[in-house]
Design a protein around this nucleic acid. Sequence first.
DNA 1: CGAAAATAGTTGCTTTAAGCAACTAAGATG
DNA 2: CATCTTAGTTGCTTAAAGCAACTATTTTCG
Lengths: 304, 304
Amino acid sequence: MSDATQIFAIRDFNRFYTARLGLLRQRHLDGEFSLTEARMLYEIWANPRLTASNLRGILGLDRGYISRLLASLTKRKLVRQAVSKADSRERLLSLTPAGEKKMAALNRQSEKQIEEMLQGLSREERERLVTSLGVVRSLLTAQKSSEVQVERLSEVTEEVLDLLQEYYEAVGVMVRDTPESVGEIVNDPDAGVWIATLNGKIVGCAYLHSLPSMPGATECKRLYVKPSARGKGVAHALLDAQEAFARSRGFKRIYLDSKDDLRVAIGLYQRRGFVACERYNDNPQATVFLMKEIAETSTKALRR
Amino acid sequence: MSDATQIFAIRDFNRFYTARLGLLRQRHLDGEFSLTEARMLYEIWANPRLTASNLRGILGLDRGYISRLLASLTKRKLVRQAVSKADSRERLLSLTPAGEKKMAALNRQSEKQIEEMLQGLSREERERLVTSLGVVRSLLTAQKSSEVQVERLSEVTEEVLDLLQEYYEAVGVMVRDTPESVGEIVNDPDAGVWIATLNGKIVGCAYLHSLPSMPGATECKRLYVKPSARGKGVAHALLDAQEAFARSRGFKRIYLDSKDDLRVAIGLYQRRGFVACERYNDNPQATVFLMKEIAETSTKALRR
DNA sequence: CGAAAATAGTTGCTTTAAGCAACTAAGATG
DNA sequence: CATCTTAGTTGCTTAAAGCAACTATTTTCG
């Protein structure tokens, strides 16, 4: 297939898919929210501790406009703005219970729309659809931004402790890591802490530590990316580094747990080849347990 | 994979792809045309004899707004509006030479953007991308709207002659079919004229006639769908019927010719499995020659 | 056939989405 | 401490698009 034909096929698909999704429409299916408002609600819902500036980065809109929309959503009691303790200029955004409810309704609507789209497809055809979309996505995500740097930590710094603290606050756990507790993992030759930097600034972290009760297995924990740095492949870069490390140490499987409402994160894990497994720990917060085989064959399997 | 997981995966893809398209779109605003203007120019370029009402159906915009935009494009000498002979309320839209030129520039721009998107993908990966998009598209197009009805003509009516006339005008050929000339094909047991109706109204037609010089081959000609009925699977329905007929008569291949600037049509043929072949006639207007094997194996081949 | 209904398009007016720029308040820098 | 940067707000403006009332043709149907 010639280049020109390929490009035409892609443009053609874009037009087709755009029409299919009904993008370009202004109002969300609902009527209560503009498309932009709905996107804002979604982002606030999906990203804890988001700020207006983060939203600006994600949505690519004017500061003033975002400020006004947030004011409106706040006045409608759907969004809360809490002044950040760390920086009192920032307002941490979250949904009120009423906002959560609306968001759930929006999600249901959008799910219904997709169900309609799937109407008339057999079970097998649906599988093919999802697989093909996955292929497209992984191909187009492949180009990683080179600004993201990941390294295995060799020394515990204040900055890293701050980031961990942010993670604990985000998940609502009342723990505090000390230089000693982190140092222990950092110095374990079969475990470690990875940090990701974006343009020199630390934006994400993840632990890897072995599971003594399960030989050949290691666990990824405390994977966290700052809201402002999401969607840039930071989590992928961290997991890439951890998988390479785990493979080099002879581990066969990586485990991790999550909560079922963290769907964005779980989707990401699944795209990387993680599959559901049995509960392997007694963390009461965890409701989803995933595992990935990291033996050499796994890459082949992914290609189908 | 559970239903919920599938739906989530699709929503997730939609968000991802929307963001990707958004990046492409943003730049579109750099120049002279708004996104809507560009879409309008595209539709006028791709669909001969379009009217403002057709545009309204395609773009889903307000009549008044479309009228104004068309007036602006006309004033800028990019679009021509010719009063329709058949219905003097309608204005048939077409691009002026200057408009064609702008359209070509827009196309180049958009192709360049997609090239950038493909940057970093190997030849093989690009093939996989296009194939996957094709799978997605064919799965989502599968649900044909049941309102489209296709039948092989048994009697030549005024209505059919009018539609054929519209086709000739659209392609700029000065031919006029008579009841006799059409009747000849209609009564040929190995050929025929198919017509498609949408909600009872005739909206498309196509000839099928054998190629005496090429045994086992038949040719599709005069495939035409009214602008107002495009994008509803009418052409697919016509070709489906013709292929079934051709197969039943023992034909092995269907040929057709086209012009290389009718990219939408050619894209459609390619998605159906037509592949480029040698010039098989001396039609001076034709620049593209396509052929499809319709032996039983062909469906398997399509599935890959 | 001719009156009423439908369709194609135009135009005046209004709403909505979103940007720009100037401003305040709080932090970061040096 | 003075300056520079960042987060967010607010007044003003522009661009995109809808609504509704209007004209000019067709179509329909009693």
